[in-house]
Design a protein around this nucleic acid. Structure first.
Lengths: 107, 107
DNA sequence: CGGTTATATAACATATACGTTATATAACCG
DNA sequence: CGGTTATATAACGTATATGTTATATAACCG
């Protein structure tokens, strides 16, 4: 799962998560994404490249503009991997419940 | 959500994801976690420190040993944040469906 | 107590990440 | 065509991550 590296790594940066949150509201161009941040345009462009590389966003060409929007695949992959942890946590929790239930009568 | 930085950052490393996958099977000591990897014990100890700092694992003391197990909180936080993306993707997908549905009759 | 085992920390090298400014590319518009 | 706008890339500095080896701490065991 080499792609999980890129996806989680992309999500580790707060600016990139903010960009994704903005894109959750709908498509946006690079300059529209630059505006709310106190960062330069090249910085945002590189963040977008990282997000695109991680499969978290897709882009199209529209004249000079390159609008970005959310891509579904990476989120699905992440969910799938986290599912493993979720299931394990549920299992362990059940086990703990079992232990507690077994202890109760003795007290 | 400063903690998401740490959580996603921790998950970005394949060794740490492998450690979590191992812990999904149940508690393990540091040396038990060192064994399957081609890494030194200090390297694993530091990965564990990162995972603990991110709230992904918890540890107890048992004599000389310090067994690790999965912690639930960080996964829940991650799920919550990803939920925002999931909902947005569903919404955008619906919107696309709507567009396609509106186009079909015209063809 | 003294040696062994389990784990953590320090010190260090190297690679990667993230920001900046300067510049390139490429479409648009008068 | 020439200027403006939108975006990408290059070059660079600095911080952080990841690994290593060497060493510290601390519990256990004979």
């Amino acid at each position: 799962m080499a792609n999980l590296d890129a996806a989680f790594s992309a999500l580790a940066d707060p600016t990139r998560r903010a960009i994704l949150a903005r894109l959750a509201l709908g498509e946006a161009t690079v300059m529209e994404l630059v505006e709310p941040f106190e960062l330069t345009q090249p910085a945002i462009s590189r963040h977008l490249k990282v997000l695109e590389g991680a499969g978290l966003i897709v882009r199209r060409a529209e004249g000079t503009k390159r609008p970005c929007r959310l891509a579904p695949t990476a989120v699905a992959e992440i969910d799938q991997w986290l599912g493993m942890l979720r299931r394990a946590l549920e299992t362990n929790y059940d086990r703990l419940d079992g232990v507690l239930a077994a202890m109760k009568p003795e007290k």
